[in-house]
């Protein structure tokens, strides 16, 4: 936690978060006086998801996502907690930067979608060509902006030219200067109602999308692909593809095990909120699923690191993933039943 201030001198507390978008959304609500944690935001915004999108390739890497699409968490949370928000995109970079400065002058904090490569306050290991990183701009400073990036421990400075490039970077999933902020919130939101909506939505997303690449079906699809990956690709290529999956699972600010630990943390808070023992046991189940995903990434990492010498096989890694799919299916079906019994 670090104390900062906005352009009008209003204090702002920077909290460290695991994931960019839920961290940003949580910071918005805290700034408006509603104290809501990152896992809570993630749960209410139905962040947990699975999708395998082999046809979008930013930086040559296929997308395996463990959360819903960028922007959805913020929109859903703002709607479910009855907050008013503004979302804007721009064609003209200059206009986008001018409007950002104007909004900042009113003391409002602003969320931006940016390209990770052009954010120079990051070091080499963070910077890759991916336009989906969210951050908060606090105020304008000399030659740049003061930025509260929730994935980092402390606020940082970013030069204006770099921020402009990051906002208007071209390529897959372009941000087009995507800018968003909360204008007002309900000071006493109905957290229980919002949690129920969030959980129901998550169950639908994971169980009921009739496409083979999303939800539980998506996990099974990818797992079967991993099992037979060596038939199609040589070992080096197969290891590279597996490494990409592990990056999405562990490396891209997921809070560990592809957001599963974060969701377990949400269920823990929800269990306290509702006083429900069933939710508490579901939280433990989610933690166990998280451990299974972690096990999968450990096995896969061993394959990647030792190549041929390893005793681990692609079939074993794929099998672990199938196991995760089975457990998650049971988990979400149980959650569906438990949610119906919860009272607002």
């Amino acid at each position: 936690m670090t104390l900062e201030s906005t352009a009008t001198g209003k204090p702002f507390v920077h909290h460290h978060a695991a994931h960019c978008e839920s961290g940003v959304t949580s910071a918005f609500f805290r700034d408006k006086g509603v104290d809501i944690s990152e896992p809570m935001v993630f749960g209410i915004g139905s962040g947990i998801f699975f999708g395998y999108l082999p046809f979008i390739k930013p930086a040559g890497m296929t997308i395996t996502t463990f959360r819903s699409q960028p922007g959805a968490i913020f929109r859903k949370v703002a709607k479910r907690l009855s907050g008013d928000f503004v979302v804007k995109t721009y064609r003209n970079p200059q206009k986008g930067m001018d409007e950002l400065r104007q909004v900042l002058k009113t003391g409002q904090i602003v969320g931006l979608k940016t390209n990770l490569y052009w954010l120079t306050y990051f070091s080499e290991r963070f910077r890759f060509n991916f336009s989906g990183h969210n951050l908060i701009v606090l105020r304008e400073i000399e030659n740049g902006f003061r930025i509260s990036d929730p994935t980092l421990e402390h606020p940082v400075d970013c030069p204006a030219a770099d921020l402009q490039r990051a906002r208007f970077a071209r390529g897959p999933m372009e941000a087009h200067g995507y800018m968003y902020y909360l204008t007002s919130v309900n000071p006493n939101p109905d957290l229980r109602q919002a949690c129920i909506k969030g959980m129901k939505d998550s169950c639908n997303l994971m169980l009921r999308i009739p496409l083979p690449i999303f939800g539980i079906r998506g996990i099974r699809f990818l797992a079967r692909k991993i099992i037979s990956i060596t038939e199609k690709f040589d070992l080096n290529e197969a290891c590279r593809l597996l490494a990409d999956i592990i990056r999405w699972l562990e490396d891209t600010g997921t809070g560990g095990a592809g957001f599963r630990y974060m969701y377990a943390a949400f269920l823990q808070e929800a269990a306290d909120l509702f006083g429900s023992a069933e939710l508490a046991s579901l939280s433990e189940e989610m933690t166990a699923i998280g451990h299974d995903w972690r096990e999968f990434s450990l096995v896969a990492t061993r394959i990647i690191k030792q190549r041929n010498k390893s005793e681990e096989t692609f079939a074993k890694a794929g099998g672990l993933m199938l196991n995760c799919a089975n457990r998650e299916e049971i988990f979400f079906k149980r959650l569906q039943k438990v949610v119906r019994k919860l009272k607002t």
């Binding site: 460290h16 978060a17 695991a18 896992p39 990051f122 070091s123 290991r125 963070f126 994935t151 980092l152 421990e153 490494a243 592990i246 990056r247 699972l249 562990e250 490396d251 600010g253 997921t254 809070g255 560990g256 630990y261 974060m262 377990a264 943390a265 823990q268 433990e284 933690t287 972690r294 990434s297 450990l298 896969a300 990492t301 990647i304 690191k305």
Partner: peptide, 30 residues
């Protein structure tokens, strides 16, 4: 720079831990 991840502590309560996991270090280095 440190990134956080959620891990259960001794009492089973989730906290934000800033130590990277081993798979993360390997795939990122790769």
């Amino acid at each position: 720079l440190k990134r956080g991840q959620y891990t259960p502590n001794n009492q089973g309560k989730y906290i934000l831990d800033t130590n990277p996991s081993w798979p993360e270090t390997v795939v990122n280095g790769l």
